[in-house]
Structure formats: structure tokens, C-alpha cells
Design a protein around this nucleic acid. Structure first.
Lengths: 207, 207, 207, 207
DNA sequence: CATGAATGAGGCTTCATTCAT
DNA sequence: GATGAATGAAGCCTCATTCAT
């Protein structure tokens, strides 16, 4: 499942484009720069992508998919309790982004594309779909914690899932903004507290 | 004495610009559209702002400041415990954005400006400053909860603060993406769990 | 005949405009700069001049006329021989420009206006008229030297006059370009040689 | 390998630009007009020149250099006496400009650029350098006339050289202004008188 | 398939001119 | 008359896209 050692030219363009888009933003990126970064001629890009926007969308899909794949794997691998699985997922997500934090600004650009680009519809739809799917995965994990009696606080799994995704997003964003920041530590503390909250809500009442 | 200067015109331009930037994104926004939205001539904008970027920065500042002011007020007004203050703050923040959620995409654009625009330095600096200040306000609130013995979980106030900001950001974002979503409800549930976590962390284990 | 001690506002504008036009060139000059230099409001200029071009033309006329007046006076005042009169004229012309050499670039701008401006016709006509008149004055002086037997070289007075005007123009231009340059000295040497040439052409024949 | 680069295109643009600049002046010239005159697209100019000003400077250099080359050749070719060489130079200069007199207004524009354009420094420097070099060439010719005993009037070669250049400039200018005018004739008469003056200065005094 | 020279629509910005006060 | 805020036509330049080689 790993990418080929010698990625195809299309992938090389996508990866080059990802770097440039991350560095300069969508509007700030010149097709010429992408070509240069990929070490090819400007016209060649158009052999593989209809337009700048199509290229951007390809980058978007590429990241979405590769993130999704890794997250799925992490969830599947982790064992035992829902809490441990959630923690594993959080850790995986942050760990997979840390080494390529310089690409994280792409997420911003994708969000922005959602309102800005002519083809915003497509972006918004894909974004929403990916988001919803991700949120459902997490909500399911939480739900299974309730089912097993592991959690008992009166909270809606979907809403908690939304918050979780937001927190990871925010932590990575801050790490990107401030290299000193330790997103993994913050995430773990947050997970700790949150899981504690999910578990200990009723005990108080029980007394 | 010439057509008398309307002291509100600058603000009117800023507000018109905010709407257009929110709708179209920075690059997608034409100065002509802003002028039209403001009901003035294209050249008039340049009487008040050096350039498109300067106008965008003014919008940025405007939102930053107005948000900051309202948040400060909310924190100051709320009484009693740290938990209540934090909840008041969260509620205020989300409530103040809800009616103008259509402007929320601006936050994305600001983030994006941080890497995209020629004057990205200025944006990044201002952004970081505002973020840091906001985070410190929240961290202080949390800290005072520790000082008063209200909280006892072993967590770093600054890291928790970061997560909180991220969660609000994410909830508003999702509300903007999905009109069905209830950010206030999600925020309250999250606060509930988190505050619970902050209060009950170790005692349970200690037993 | 001297200008009023307190020039009228129209003249103040013309003089301010002359300074700015000389400094910045026609296109480089903003009406706002002229207004500022004249210490008045931007709109006030339009009370006195139909347009920027009209103002420029007024500056042009102003300089043409004041130069013409002084030159006429110089020619009239100088006595005796044609040679002395020519020398007096040359000296006067250069001396009157030296203290306001910073305005000399205006001459360039006028020349340029002759091809550039919408109203180039008017400029070209006025320029040609002034030039022709000036050249005729000088040609007459030379002719009277022939008439009196002072000169005897076989040369056309009008062509010599053209060269003389050109030489003064060039010397002032160079003085403007290079503050070290001594246009008065160069002019005198040239006049010396030329007058010598005008006188001594025939000696060969005389023998 | 893409549309093959036409090595003459840059020069073709320069020549087209020269015509338009000469006709309309610097400010009056539209990049679109230059493109049209050159029979290419507007954007193509920018493949070869950074900006309108850079294009103008290229035109400037082009004319400076081609003039310089031809003048050098003329001086080198002419034989015998200094007087003959000077006359050959004058004739060459005027003859080379006569057929392209419609470009002569460019000289005005260059002068004007010296004060008007943002990059005036560059223009002024180049202009001064070219001028100085040209003047020195002529001064050397005159000096060699003194060295050989051909001339004996007490005149400074550099100052005479300045006047000569000025006279040529002025004659061409007048020819441009007035198609009737015969600059070659006027130049020859002037040279005649001046050379006569340079040779016969002392005899008069001797009397 | 690959290239990069050529293109021209499009947008920011300037600034002469107008006109309400 | 005097002013300067408002205006919008106009122009330089950028850059995604095309297409001849």
C-alpha cells in the first residue's frame, strides 16, 4: 500500500504542488513555480491536470485520502478499551502530521477554497463528506465506550467528536504557528481530562 | 470646505469589505465589489486605505478588536467560580459569532493571509499576539481555579487553553459549514466534561 | 513693467507650477503637488486654469514672454557694433537663466509637449513662432553686421542664428546637467571664434 | 521545444517601441500600442523587458550605442587634418539622423526621463557618460589640431566641443520642427566659420 | 509526450477633474 | 470664491492557459 519508490509523474506533480501551495497559498502559487518545483516544464502540468484548480483539488484529495488511510489503520490496530483507541487515534493523527507540519497550512487553503474558488461546491462537498466520515468514526468509538459501560457521562458522541477534531486541528495549527508548542502533550492532557469527564460524570451523583 | 467628511465612512467601508471578503475570499474579492457593496466609487476606498491588503488588514483588526472587547467584558462580568467564568466566556464567544456566522470564513482568510500575502509578517505577528493574549486570559482563568482549589487535575493551563480556543474555533467552523449543527450545545457539553475532568481527576484514582 | 511685489494668485500658481513641472516633468507632476506648492486647495487651480495642460501652457507662455522681454531689452540697450550686441545678447541670455537653472528642464518638457500632449499643435505653433522670432532678431543683428561691413564671411545669417540659439540651449542644458560646467565662459569663447570667423573669412581674399 | 525563440524579436520590439515613443512621448505611449506596432501580444513585451521604463531604457541604449558606433567609424575613417575630421564627424552625425528624423524627438524624451522617471538616476548617469565620452572625442580632435599647429586661437577644446555638440543637437531639432530647414548646410557654414576662427585668431590681434 | 514562448483577459491603482459645502 | 472628498476612466502588469515545435 505504500507509494511506489519512484512515484509516477502525476504524483510527483501533486507532491510538488502540495509544497508550493503550502508555502504560498492558492493564489500566491504560480503554475510556473509548481513546474519548477517538480522539475518539469510548465506545459507538462496540463498534460495531467485540466487547470490550476483541478491540480489543487488533486492535492486536496491526496492529503485527505492519505490521512484517512492512516487514521483507519491506527483505529483498527489499537486494542482494548474505547479510551485507548481514542488516545491512539489522537496520537497517530498528530504524529503523522508533525513531520510535515509545513504542509499543514494547506488545510487552511482547503477551507478557504470552500468559499473562494469557482469550484467551491466540489470542495465544500468533499470537505463535508470527509469531515462527516471522520466524525462518525470517532463518534462510533465513543458510542462503543458507552455501550460497554466504559463511559457514562450524558454527552452526545457526535458533538464530542466534533470538539475532538477541532482540538486536533487547532493544536496542529498552533504548532505550525509556534514551533515551541507541543501539540502531542496538549492533546494527551486534553484527552486525559475529557476521558476522565466521560467516565466520572455520574460517580458524583452516585454518592 | 468641500463635501464634508463623513466620519463613519471608513467603518462603513470596513464593514462592506468584511462582507465581500467573507463571501469571496481575499483573492476573489474585487475592489470594485467592495466599492459597490459600500455604495461608493472605486477610487474612494483609496482615500481611506493604501491598498487592498491594507483594507484587509483593517478588517482583520476590526474583528480582532471587537471580539477582544466583547470577550473581556464577558469575563469581567461573570461571577463566582472559575468554571462559571469559563462557561460564560465560551457562551459569549459563540453567541457573539452565531449571528454573523457568514463572516466566520474571514478567520480562514486571515490564517491564509499569514502565508500568502506580501505583508504576511504583519498578519502573522498580529495573529500570534491576539492568540497569545486570548490564550493567556483563559489560562489565567484556569489557573485561578487551581489556586482556589476548584481544580486539581494535573494539567497545564496553557495547553488546556489552547485546546479550548481550538474547540470553539472548530465548532464555529462546523456551524458555518453545516447550518444544522448546534455549536452552543456542543460547546456546553464539552465544557461540562472538561470541567468535570479538571475537578475529579486524581481523587478518584487516589481512592 | 516689473511684476507686482505681491503677484496675483494666478501668477503664484504659475510660478508654483513652474517649479513642480521643472522638478517632476509634466506627467510626473500632480495637480495636488502644484496646489500644495502654491499653498492653496486643489480645486482652486481650476478656478484659474481649465486643465493641467492649460496650466502647463500658461507656464510655457510665462517663460517665453519673460525671456523674450529681457532679451529684447538687452539687444536694445547694447551699443555700437553688431558683434558687441551679439555678445551682449548671449551674455544676457545665459546670465538670466543661470540663477534659475533648476527651471531649465522646463524647456525640455516644452519640447516634449510638442509631440506628446493632446494640444501639441498649440505648443508646436507657439514654440515655432517664438523660435522664429528669436532667430530673426539674431539674424537681423548679423545682417546689420554685414550691412555695415563689419562681417564679410559668406554665411547665411539665419543659419548662423540657428546655430547660435542651439549653442546657448546646449550650454545651459549642460550647465544644468553638470554644475561644474561654465556656460558663460564657453559661450564667450564660442562667440569669439565665430565672430572672428565672420570677420576674417575674406582676409585671404583681401590679400 | 515550444515555439522557437526568435533571436531578433527583442530588437524588433525595441525598434517598434522607438517609433511609438518618438511619436507619443514616454507617458503618451501605451504598452498596448508598442505591442501592436511590433505585431505581438501585449504580454510578450514583458517576456523581454521588465517594465515600460526598462523598455524605454533599452531604446535609449540602442540609440546611444548605434550613434556612438557610427560616429567612431566616421572619425576613424576621415583622414588628414583635424579640421577635415571634425567636418566629417559633423556631416556623418547629421546625415545619419536625417533619414530617421522622426526619431529625434526621442532625444527630448531621454532628457526628460532624466528628471521625470523613477529610474532617472540610471538615465542621468548613462546620459552624462555618453555625453562626456562624445565630448572628449571631439575635444581630442580639436586638441590634436592645436598639437599639429593647425589651430592657434586661444580656446578650450572641451568648451568648443560642448558648443559643437549643442549646435548639432539644435540643428537636428530644428530640422525636426521645420522640414524646410537644412541642417547640413547650416552645420557646414558653422563649421567653416568656427574652423576659420580657430585658425585665424591671432592675425587680428597681431594687427 | 514535453516544452516554454506567446497570449490577453482581468485587476489594482492612480490621478485629473468635479461639485457639494 | 475656495476647498478637498469623491469619482471612474485609463493603463501597467500578472499569470493561467494554449499550441507550435
Amino acid at each position: 500500500m505504500a507509494r511506489k519508490a519512484d512515484p509516477t509523474k502525476k504524483d510527483r506533480i501533486i507532491e510538488a504542488a502540495a509544497r508550493v501551495f503550502a508555502r504560498k497559498g492558492y493564489s500566491g502559487t504560480l503554475m510556473a513555480s509548481v513546474a519548477q518545483e517538480a522539475g518539469i516544464g510548465k506545459g507538462t502540468i496540463y498534460e495531467y491536470f485540466r487547470s490550476k484548480e483541478a491540480l489543487f483539488y488533486a492535492v486536496f484529495e491526496h492529503l485527505m485520502i492519505s490521512t484517512g488511510v492512516q487514521v483507519q489503520a491506527a483505529v483498527a490496530a489499537a486494542a482494548d478499551s474505547s479510551a485507548l483507541r481514542l488516545q491512539a487515534l489522537a496520537d497517530t493523527l498528530i504524529r503523522m502530521w508533525l513531520p510535515k507540519l509545513d504542509l499543514y497550512s494547506l488545510v487552511m487553503e482547503f477551507w478557504s477554497a470552500t468559499t473562494t474558488l469557482p469550484g467551491r461546491r466540489q470542495f465544500k462537498k468533499a470537505f463535508r463528506a470527509a469531515y462527516t466520515e471522520f466524525r462518525d468514526v470517532i463518534a462510533d468509538l465513543i458510542q462503543s465506550g458507552y455501550d460497554s459501560g466504559e463511559f457514562n457521562a450524558p454527552a452526545d458522541p457526535h458533538q464530542i467528536a466534533s470538539v475532538l477534531i477541532g482540538s486536533w486541528d487547532a493544536l496542529l495549527l498552533q504548532a505550525w504557528l509556534d514551533p515551541e508548542f507541543d501539540p502531542l502533550g496538549a492533546s494527551r492532557q486534553h484527552m486525559q481530562l475529557l476521558l476522565q469527564g466521560l467516565r466520572s460524570a455520574q460517580p458524583t451523583e452516585a454518592q
